[in-house]
Amino acid sequence: MQETQLQRVQEAVARCRDLPGALLPMLHAIQDDLGYVPPEAVPTIAKALALSRAEVHGVISFYHHFRSAPPGRHVIQVCRAEACQSIGAERLVARLRERLGIDFHGTTADGAVSLEAVYCLGNCACAPAVMVDGALRGRVTEAVLDEIIDTAALVDEHVGVAGGAR
C-alpha cells in the first residue's frame, strides 16, 4: 500500500469511526475511494474500532462486495440469477469467458477487465442484465456484450495516451 493510500484509508476511518455500526460504512468508504480494501488497512481499521484484525478480516471476507485486491480498470458484473437465466444469461457468461479468457472473480492479464457474478440487479423484466462500472444494462445480447468489451478497450487506449502525455 502506498503512502497516499494509507492516508486515504486514515481519512475514511476518521470519517466513519463514530457512526453506530461503523465497520461496513468504513469499508465502503475505503473501497469506494481505492477500489478495494487493502489488507494493510486492516490493522488501522481494527484499532479504530477496538476490534481484532481477525474480526475485521472476517467481515471483509464474508461479503461478496468487498475486495482485497485491486480490480481491473473496468468491472463487468453479469447477473446469474433465475430471471436472467430464463432468457439467456448463461450464453452471455459463455461469451464473456471466451472473449476475456477469464472466469468469475478473474481479471484479464492486461488489467483491463474484471469479471464478477452477481445475483440479481433488479432488472428482471429487461433481462438479461449486466452492470458495467456501475452502469446498468438491460436486454443484453452477445452483440451488445461485444460492443461493451470493445468500448472498454477503446476507452483504455484513450486513457493510455492521456496518461503518456502526462
Binding site: P20, G21, A22, L23, L24, L27, H28, L49, V59, F62, Y63, H64, H65, F66, V118, Y119
Partner: peptide, 18 residues
C-alpha cells in the same frame, strides 16, 4: 455488501451493527 442472507431480518441487523 452483496450478501443475499442479509435480507433475512436478524442477519440484516447484524450487518447494520457492522
Amino acid at each position: 455488501a452483496g450478501a443475499y442472507i442479509c435480507g433475512e431480518e436478524t442477519s440484516l441487523l447484524e450487518s447494520l451493527e457492522g
